[in-house]
Design a protein around this nucleic acid. Structure first.
Length: 467
RNA sequence: GGUCCCAUCGUCUAGUGGCCUAGGACGUGGCCCUCUCAAGGCUAAAACACGGGUUCGACUCCCGUUGGGACUACCA
């Protein structure tokens, strides 16, 4: 029996859950679910100046929306400071770490000097041999080995070799007593029995340093898998400059969480030629071996296409639920409206092939719901001529005599009418469409009539025809 | 500057030495379908960065060049 898989997503609450973080979370989640493992959410908030509770909530909100459920946590590192302190003291006592009294200002100055002299910028280790704790506030640095090599056996990139001489004695405890990332991440991953560290490849260069901390404690090193970055269209790291980057922004723009998940997973991972995956398929197919080693460019067009596919394949009930908040937000429907979800589902379903987002769907739905609609002037000019209004009057008469205006009933009647007059169906359908929807694009006109119902249809026709 | 990573159509990718006349998807053009718009179907243009090796044979392996990216904090 092998050790159970335990993975974690460890964002720092210094911003919303963004696209890149969401993908890291997703790959961790998939790996856990695929291997019947445990997925842990851990908040890395050791930077007290930049971390906020609002961002923690935003991250939780984003993960919840994407349906990336975690089994443990969220843990917060600020709750564990005494733990880190104890571990740091142990390293000091064993001579594996030391106090450093160099001030940030001094360090910065030396760094600048080294940079302009084209020298390596790493800490020079001048406090390395200090034994006692100094009187003044001091940071604690980890004593890195200066010889030999460290090899990271990355599950995605293969073995990566680092010369220990390029690793600097990093600060593990600040002079104010708070621990730093590269230290706590190791302590937590051990305490939480993490077996696979799956994270962005911006952490590759940190990994050998972290490995030395594991070794200083005599701990077993977990497996590492570094995911390539997500880039913007200009190939630089994805940022706000490239448009929306927060997960909740996509929610608000009317994207379906499953569509985003599907898009994100295909960024860097593939399973043959398959493009669309259900969650179950994803869990079934996912493997880290299938993850590519190179960075990928975020392509909003393809996300939009996927979203369309997911909308098309949704059930009426699911669409009704999904579109309702957007109808309320856009003012098309009152928050306390008692609209039938059954009817709403039918209406939404009729628009599924012409809505790339839920926002587009809600916008189009106005003609099903509004008391009155504005008619596009150009459409009116082209399609509501005296001749076509005459035709509409005949349609009105016909509909008025019906009790059932379902498509199955009305369509053959209008077809007959067109044939009898030697007209193409469009000659009647387009004026009808303009009269009923205010524009020239809509679902099939008989479907529209059925959904609107007799009363609303006649009302709209009356406004156009007059009398 | 140093360290590390990466490199197939514009983009996401398939490809694990012969199956490649390099496949799929998004986007783009054309055609079909059609009451509009979509959706859908068919179709076209579009790539192995470059140079050396290795091999009977390289998109696939090795080296170099070039080009991208990440890190280089008492941020994470």
């Amino acid at each position: 029996m092998t050790t159970p898989v335990r993975v974690r997503f460890a964002p720092s609450p210094t911003g919303f859950l963004h696209i890149g973080g969401a993908r890291t979370a997703l790959f961790n989640w998939l790996y856990a679910r695929r291997n019947n493992g445990v997925f842990i959410l851990r908040i890395e908030d050791t930077d007290r100046d930049r971390s906020t509770d609002e961002y923690i909530e935003a991250i939780v909100e984003g993960m919840t929306w994407l349906r990336l459920d975690w089994d443990e946590g969220p843990y917060r590192q600020t709750d564990r400071f005494d733990v880190y302190r104890a571990y740091a003291d142990r390293l000091i006592a064993e001579g594996k770490a030391y106090y450093c009294t160099c001030t940030p200002e001094e360090l910065e100055e030396r760094r600048q000097r080294a940079l302009s002299a084209n020298q390596p910028v790493a800490y020079d280790g001048r406090c390395r041999e200090r034994i006692e704790k100094p009187a003044e506030p001091a940071a604690v640095r980890f004593r890195m080995p200066r010889e030999g090599q460290t090899i990271v056996n990355d599950l995605i990139k293969g073995p990566i070799t680092f010369e220990n001489s390029v690793l600097e004695d990093m600060v593990i405890v600040r002079s104010d007593g708070t621990p730093t990332y590269n230290f706590v991440v190791v302590v937590d991953d051990i305490d939480m029995k993490i077996t696979h560290v799956i994270r962005g490849d911006d952490h590759v260069n940190n990994t050998p340093k972290q490995i030395h901390i594991y070794q200083a404690f005599g701990w077993e090193v977990p497996a590492f898998a570094h995911l390539p970055m997500i880039l913007g269209a200009d190939k630089s790291r994805l940022s706000k400059r490239h448009g929306a980057t927060s997960v909740t922004a996509y929610r608000d723009m009317g994207y379906l969480p499953d569509a985003l998940v599907n898009y994100l997973v295909r960024l860097g991972w593939a399973h043959g030629d398959q493009e669309i995956f259900s969650r179950e398929e994803l869990i079934q197919c996912f493997s880290l071996e299938g993850v590519g080693a190179s960075a990928s460019v975020f392509n909003p067009e393809k996300l939009l296409w996927l979203n369309t596919q997911y909308i098309i394949n949704s059930t009426p009930g699911a669409l009704a639920e999904a579109v309702l908040p957007f109808l309320v937000k856009s003012g098309i429907l009152a928050a306390d409206s008692d609209v039938s979800m059954d009817w709403l589902g039918k209406a939404a379903y009729s628009l599924r092939e012409r809505s790339r987002t839920l926002v587009e769907m809600a916008t189009q739905m106005h003609y099903y719901l509004a008391a009155d609609i504005a008619i596009d002037p150009k459409a009116r000019e082209k399609h509501l001529t005296p001749e076509s209004i005459q035709l509409l009057a005949e349609v009105r008469t016909m509909l008025a005599g019906l009790t059932d205006v379902s498509a199955a009933v009305v369509e053959p009647l209008v077809h007959e009418m067109a044939v009898a007059k030697g007209l193409k169906l469009g000659a009647i359908a387009q004026p009808l469409r303009v009269a009923l929807t205010g524009g020239t694009a809509s679902p099939g006109i008989f479907e529209v009539i059925e959904i609107m119902g007799k009363e609303l249809v006649l009302q709209r026709l009356n406004r156009v025809i007059g009398g």
